[in-house]
Computed example of a mutant assay.
Amino acid sequence: MATTKWAIDPAHSEIGFKVKHMMFTNVSGNFEKFDASIETEGDDFSTAKFDFSGETSSITTGNADRDNHLKSADFFDAEQFPKLTFKSTSFDKISEGEYKLTGDLSLHGVTKQVKLDVEFGGLAKDPWGNTKTGLSATGKINRKDWGLNWNSALETGGVLVGEEVKLNIELQFIQG
């Protein structure tokens, strides 16, 4: 069976995250510049191989001061580590439309395995005849596992920035 290549549709995709701030509210953000692709055998996604890269300097949270801090050596160190990457190692079907995506996330000079829950939206043709697919992925990582250790203690106890990062990823791909 022939290999099918799927390219990201960035206009209909989002790489989002949430982190606790001051122990009680979430701050959301995303990466604005990224690329992703999938390779499958025909239209069989059980064989899917995912490849993703994002520019760390494209992080945005809606606050320029916070974004600049995140890009600094305290966090992503975007100058020294301009990209984060993900390469899948498996895509396992759990039930109809539900998968577990496992792969290696490289960030800040560290590579670790992560597992994401994926909702597979199936295949559909858009109004222009292009075959598309959509996936929603969620998961959690501990930022300290990748050396993103900066924090500040609060007078009332606890810390300014949570360690757990919740990932919320919406991806749309076009068959190419």
Results as ranks from 00 to 15, higher is better:
A2F: 15
A2R: 14
T4D: 14
W6I: 07
A7Q: 14
I8N: 12
D9C: 06
A11F: 07
E14W: 06
G16S: 05
K18V: 03
K20M: 14
M22K: 06
M22R: 05
M23N: 10
M23F: 03
F24N: 11
T25I: 03
S28L: 05
S28H: 08
G29Q: 04
G29V: 02
F31N: 04
K33R: 13
K33A: 12
K33T: 09
F34I: 01
D35C: 01
A36S: 09
A36G: 05
S37C: 02
E39A: 11
E39D: 12
E41D: 15
E41R: 00
E41N: 12
F45G: 01
F45K: 00
A48S: 04
K49V: 11
F50E: 00
S53M: 10
G54W: 01
T56K: 04
I59K: 03
T60L: 08
T60A: 13
T61M: 07
A64L: 03
R66A: 03
R66L: 07
D67C: 09
N68M: 04
H69E: 03
K71R: 15
F75H: 01
F76A: 02
F76R: 02
D77M: 02
A78G: 05
E79W: 02
E79N: 12
F81C: 01
P82I: 03
P82V: 00
S88R: 05
T89I: 06
F91C: 05
D92S: 11
D92C: 02
I94K: 10
E96G: 04
K100R: 13
T102E: 06
G103C: 07
D104H: 10
L105Q: 08
L107T: 05
G109W: 12
V110Q: 11
T111M: 09
K112R: 14
Q113H: 10
V114E: 02
K115H: 02
L116N: 04
D117I: 03
V118C: 12
F120W: 13
G122N: 10
L123R: 13
A124I: 00
K125L: 08
D126Q: 15
D126Y: 14
D126I: 15
W128E: 00
W128M: 04
N130S: 05
T131W: 09
T131I: 03
T133F: 07
G134I: 01
G134P: 13
S136M: 13
S136R: 06
A137D: 05
I141R: 12
N142G: 10
R143A: 09
W146C: 09
G147W: 06
L148M: 08
N149G: 10
N151A: 08
T156L: 14
T156Y: 06
G157I: 12
G158V: 09
V159H: 09
V161Y: 00
G162A: 10
E163S: 15
V165H: 07
K166P: 05
K166G: 15
L167M: 10
N168Q: 14
I169V: 09
I169R: 03
Q172I: 04
Q175M: 11
